[in-house]
């Protein structure tokens, strides 16, 4: 099972951990924005491949783990791309199949282009997103959020949510195991009942945890403030300029391919 905690765990052990989170965010978010501006599938594919190389070679993320991770969104993207290829309109038909007298599925070169474009955009975007989540732990992002002047309330809430996700996941997996051991998920009807019980007890747990949290914070003189780490290793200009050059090249490619 690929859990979110496993993602965080990986992020805490990646080889680019010491790089300033700003540099990493700049590369990730910059790539996502550029992917949205691309006119065809060439640039997103280039982005996806180069970012994957960075993730595997520079951040030293396990290749198998990365491919497995990438497989989840890409299988969805593949299905959506297929639907687009067969359902959107075009002039030059390449291939068609008549399923029923009243339904013909046809792929045109325009729809094929569009489908490929959307698929490659998702591919590139996902790689950029995974680059951020695999190289930058959430804990580093909170400090950056503060520096970017995002409202404190929002950061505090996300910190508390982040802290409690792990506690609830742990609870949920314990309850799930306990139910499975007593054959809670053997029949579909049983599974529905077990799931509803699982969610019910998680709700009660979170309610209790909320009250405990208030007590714990009050016990430590809570006055509306949360400490944040805002000191990182200094931004390395060499790394940052490499990122900028990379993003410039992508921009150039976009301008060039859009003719």
């Amino acid at each position: 099972m690929i859990g979110h905690d496993f993602l965080e765990e990986t992020a805490h052990h990646n080889a680019l951990l010491q790089v300033h989170p700003f540099t990493k965010l700049f590369l990730g978010i910059g790539s996502i924005i550029l992917v949205l501006l691309t006119p065809n599938y060439i640039v997103p594919c280039f982005l996806a491949i180069t970012l994957s190389i960075i993730i595997i070679v520079l951040a030293k993320i396990n290749l198998k783990f990365y491919l497995k991770l990438l497989g989840i969104p890409l299988s969805f993207a593949m299905l959506s791309a297929l639907v687009i290829i067969f359902l959107s309109e075009g002039v030059t038909e390449i291939w068609y199949v008549q399923l029923f007298p009243w339904l013909t599925l046809a792929a045109t070169s325009e729809s094929l282009n569009q489908g490929l474009h959307i698929f490659s955009r998702i591919f590139g975007g996902m790689c950029a997103l995974f680059f951020i989540s695999l190289t930058t732990p959430m804990t580093d992002l909170f400090g950056i959020m503060k520096k970017l002047k995002i409202p404190e309330l929002f950061i505090d809430l996300s910190m508390i949510i982040y802290r409690y996700i792990f506690i609830f996941m742990e609870k949920a997996s314990q309850i799930f195991l306990a139910q499975k051991m007593r054959l809670g998920y053997t029949r579909p009807g049983e599974a529905v009942r077990s799931y509803s019980m699982l969610f019910g007890s998680i709700f009660i747990t979170s309610w209790d945890a909320g009250e405990d949290l208030i007590n714990a914070m009050d016990g430590r003189c809570y006055n509306g403030k949360h400490a944040k780490i805002t000191s990182y290793n200094p931004v390395e200009w060499r790394t940052l300029s490499a990122v900028m050059i990379y993003l410039f090249i992508i921009t150039g490619m976009i301008l060039w391919t859009s003719g």
């Binding site: 802290r163 506690i167 405990d212 006055n223 400490a227 780490i229």
Partner: peptide
């Protein structure tokens, strides 16, 4: 508290220990 998971509020050790002093 008996259960440290109840007491530890912040996402990192430093931030948690700093919680009281900041407040």
């Amino acid at each position: 508290f008996q259960d440290p998971d109840v007491q530890i509020i912040a996402p990192t050790v430093w931030q948690d220990v700093a919680f009281g002093p900041v407040n």
